[in-house]
């Protein structure tokens, strides 16, 4: 199987879906002539022309609304945000329009559209360019939210997102674009709402998603050297969440750490812990612990930036604690 980058996997997904369905178009800042701020859309303008690969002014609210309107009349827009931090300017269109249109129209206007771009922290981008938006977006009924952590998942989930008739949020990551993995050339999709057990173990579960799945895998590798076997559940889709995958794992291991990139308060982890206490109360041998970003805006300086981020060491410390080691 070919080994390609996460970036190229996304590019393949876009290209294949644009060939498959001429209602699909890509719109956003720098997606065309510049080939994408992170080069995800490389070559697409040349291949599909400027009606289907649309460079916009810096007008997030405006072009997101253009996407919503075009979806109301049957197109299937893929709206790229240069990063999710800028999508805050368009949040009204995502939340008040895309997510609610079907419901408030009594089922008349589905919103077959995708909102995508890099989410979370990269390196030293500080407060305004580093936020992880999962919990904001997953809070909203009407949206689906996916967080691919590998090139294989990136391609399969983006293709599913584009084919889905509901608005789907795709949270990518700058730190993942260069990562490599096996990705089949042929057409495949990954169903939305299905977690993947990325690694099997019976001592402790780590429940996580997206970029943090890599952190979880590294932590699990290190602990394996000490004989600790970790079950790594990569949720892949945050909404709808695969609760069965979570509970199956926790019932097996009786211990869990929930790892997420964003902040603690009202975070994704809080929701996961709620599912666990509800469905696995009698199976727990220790309180569930959470690993997350420090409760501060992201700082710039290297040492304190590192201290703010969830990482392998913090994850291992949490696993040791729930295992009373």
């Amino acid at each position: 199987m070919p080994i390609i980058t996460y970036r190229d996997a996304l590019n393949q997904a876009l290209r294949e879906e644009m060939h498959r369905d001429d209602r699909v178009f890509l719109m956003g800042e720098e997606v065309g002539v510049y080939n994408g701020a992170y080069k995800v859309s490389k070559g697409l303008l040349e291949e599909f022309g400027e009606m289907r690969v649309v460079d916009t002014p810096i007008t997030e609210l405006g072009f997101t609304g253009v996407g919503v309107g075009s979806a109301m009349v049957g197109l299937r827009p893929v709206i790229e945000f240069m990063t999710w931090n800028f999508a805050l300017l368009a949040i009204d269109q995502i939340v008040n329009a895309a997510a609610k249109m079907l419901y408030m129209s009594g089922g008349q206007f589905p919103m077959p559209m995708v909102f995508r771009g890099p989410n979370g922290a990269a390196l030293q981008l500080s407060a305004q360019h580093s936020q992880a938006w999962e919990s904001w977006l997953a809070h909203i009924p009407g949206l689906k939210v996916v967080t691919p952590g590998t090139p294989y998942d990136a391609k399969g989930l983006l293709k599913s997102a584009i084919r889905d008739d509901n608005p789907v949020i795709v949270l990518e990551a700058e730190m993942l674009y260069n990562t490599k993995g096996e990705v089949p050339d042929e057409d495949y999709v990954i169903p939305l709402g299905k977690a993947e057990l990325k690694r099997e173990g019976d001592h402790c579960s780590i429940i996580t998603s997206g970029k943090m799945a890599l952190v979880a895998m590294q932590a699990a590798d290190q602990m394996a050297k000490e004989g600790i076997r970790i079950d790594v559940v990569d949720l892949r889709t945050i909404r709808p969440m695969d609760v069965d995958a979570i509970t199956a794992s926790v019932r097996k291991t009786n211990r869990a750490v929930v790892l997420e990139e964003g902040w603690e308060v009202c975070g994704i982890g809080a929701q996961v812990v709620d599912y666990i206490q509800r469905d696995c109360f009698d199976h727990l041998d220790a309180p569930v612990l959470r690993v997350h970003q420090a409760d501060v805006p992201m700082p710039y300086a290297k040492a304190i930036e590192k201290a703010a981020k969830p990482d392998v060491a913090k994850t291992i410390a949490a696993v040791n604690k729930v295992m009373y080691r």
Partner: peptide
């Protein structure tokens, strides 16, 4: 104001 970009998107779709 929020429906004004949407209408613009409908115009975009017509032209598309």
């Amino acid at each position: 104001g929020a429906h004004v970009p949407m209408a613009t998107g409908v115009g975009f779709a017509i032209k598309y």
